[in-house]
Write a protein that binds this DNA or RNA. Structure first.
Length: 492
RNA sequence: CGGGGUGUAGCGUAGUCCGGUAUCGCGCCACAUUUGGGAUGUGGAGGUCGUCAGUUCGAAUCUGGCCACCCCGACCA
């Protein structure tokens, strides 16, 4: 167990890395750009999956699984999508190794085992899925198709960061097919709402919902919706995207259906996804210089009980009490870990569970037994209280709810403080450099201006917020007329 | 792919200029004493010094090639 976490104000990215590694969430693997998600990190991801999966099912979706490999000819069918991902694709060219005749014990790629057609390791699955949907859809009676898959994908990134950007990552991708444009757009918006609901109410991370500009749009989409979150260092993080794909994939893969009126029509499509990147958002939204902070609704362990004893008899009594509390809390669906390891002292355990982000710690000592109390410490604000044993269960139940909402309110207040409206390019640059955060500014709506602003400031348009206030103004860069302010930020 | 840096025990390091078989801390193992915020003592295990070749009686140290990783840029959920 390492002891020092870099302070946030000293070096924010180092702090982030320290948290990920020292809180046992993930590690660099010996595969370049790929990480090992460790049990503690994976447990949090599993909780995210469970909640999201239920939300998907509740909105009528079902799960399925499609292949990891996509033949190049299928991959290239939707041109824009293919072009967008071409630069970061892993490609399988051979299917066999053989022993090296010149170097005993070593293997080489068998040059005679070259594939007729290369296989692309999926960076996303639209191509293989729409190729499949072609066979599933004949009539309007086959629609809609509402399928999700949990999978890994590979995008050959040049620079990687644990959870935020790795060459391989885990995600879910929903792929739906609809009879009408309206229905597909409704689906796209519905899933954006699902994501916003999850990220705000389970992860306790406030988001701005919006649409991407043409530059930032998913390759192959007509419209990309997104949720944007703001991290503690004032940088934005895209937390989820939902795409209205129009008829682009239906046309590329020739997926038509027969209407009631016996007419042939192309199918309308959506796709939407969130990834293990959410882990990064979770970490960077709440954690502090003592380590990770996990919102109760996603914490693998809600409460840890630490015994403090002087004698064996004392320990036995504490253990009895701990087990009673544990069982009572279990009735309330609160998961409890009794940390009775005898090789570590209480102070060490306190620090360790803080580092790993357990929301509530209960310490029980022999003094408590005499007084009929326990000490309860909350992770979010590091405060402690002495609570009577008789009311411990109801107290903790309420405390977990408090912590969840406190984390959200805290993050929300921070986001509000780090949101600025500006009217000139000077103000814009100054805000980005000195204050950071979300910056609202007028933009003339052209990709050229967006590109110039990005080149000069490294800030991108994160989104055009939904239900955005319409107000006449002039673009901060070009001085041309604008109808609304859009959301800029430097981003991960 | 460009520019910079680093490779010595599980982790962090000293030693490299000036060649003589590797230092310290954390962690690990055993035992004892401890336990209300990261315990202490005693004993112990653990290293082809990134890799390959060269120079030398002798290389962590000098020379050359290669490899890996990190940081900065171009790219990106």
């Amino acid at each position: 167990m390492a002891q020092g976490i870099t302070k946030r104000e000293e070096d924010y990215s180092k702090w982030y890395n320290d948290i990920v590694v020292q809180a046992d969430l993930a590690d660099h693997s010996s595969v370049r750009g790929c990480m090992v998600i460790k049990p503690h990190g994976y447990a949090i991801w599993e909780n995210m999956q469970h909640v999201l999966d239920k939300m998907f099912k509740d909105t009528g979706h079902v799960n399925a699984y499609f292949p990891l490999f996509i033949p190049k000819s299928l991959f290239e069918a939707e041109e824009k999508n293919a072009e967008g991902f071409a630069k970061e694709c892993a490609v399988v060219t051979h299917y066999r190794l053989k022993t090296d005749p010149k170097n005993a014990g070593k293997l080489i790629v068998d040059p005679e085992a070259k594939l007729e057609e290369e296989l692309i390791v999926r960076p996303t699955s639209e191509a293989i899925i729409w190729n499949t949907y072609k066979g599933w859809i004949e009539s309007y009676r086959d629609l809609p198709i509402l399928v999700n898959q949990w999978a890994n994908v590979v995008r050959w990134e040049m620079r990687t960061r644990l959870f935020l950007r790795t060459s391989e990552f885990l995600w879910q991708e929903g792929h739906t097919a609809h009879a009408t444009k309206e229905e597909a757009i409704e689906e796209t918006e519905k899933m954006l709402e699902v994501y916003a609901d999850f990220v705000e109410n389970w992860m306790a991370v406030p988001v701005v919902k919006g649409k991407k500009t043409a530059n930032e749009r998913f390759a192959g989409a007509d419209e990309t919706y997104c949720i944007e979150a703001l991290m503690q260092d004032g940088k934005a993080l895209q937390a989820g995207t939902s795409h209205f794909l129009g008829q682009n994939f239906a046309k590329a893969f020739d997926v038509k259906y027969v209407t009631k009126e016996n007419k042939q029509e192309y199918v309308w499509a959506t796709s939407w996804g969130v990834s293990t990147r959410l882990m990064g958002a979770l970490i960077m939204s709440h954690s502090d210089d003592n380590g990770l902070i996990i919102p109760p609704k996603l914490a693998p362990t809600h409460v840890v009980i630490v015994p403090i004893h002087k004698t064996e008899e004392g320990l036995a009594k504490i253990t009895d009490l701990a087990n009673t509390i544990k069982n009572n809390l279990k009735q309330k669906n609160i998961s409890v870990k009794y940390d009775n390891r005898d090789s570590y002292r209480p102070g060490f355990k306190f620090a360790e569970h803080e580092l790993k982000g357990v929301p509530v710690r209960v310490a029980i000592g022999e003094r408590d037994l005499a007084n009929g109390t326990v000490e309860v410490a909350r992770r979010d604000n590091l405060t402690k209280e002495v609570i009577s044993i008789s009311e411990i269960e109801t107290y903790i139940e309420k405390l977990l709810v408090d912590i969840q909402s406190n984390l959200f309110e805290r993050a929300k207040a921070r986001q509000a403080n780090l949101t600025t409206h500006v009217n000139t390019f000077e103000e814009f640059k100054k805000t980005l450099d000195e204050k950071t955060g979300f910056v609202y500014a007028h933009w003339d709506g052209t990709p050229e201006t967006e590109e110039k602003i990005k080149e000069e400031t490294k800030a991108t348009i994160r989104c055009i917020p939904l239900n955005n206030l319409q107000e006449a103004g002039v673009c901060i860069y070009s001085g041309k007329p604008s109808t609304q302010k859009v959301l800029f930020a430097r981003a991960y």
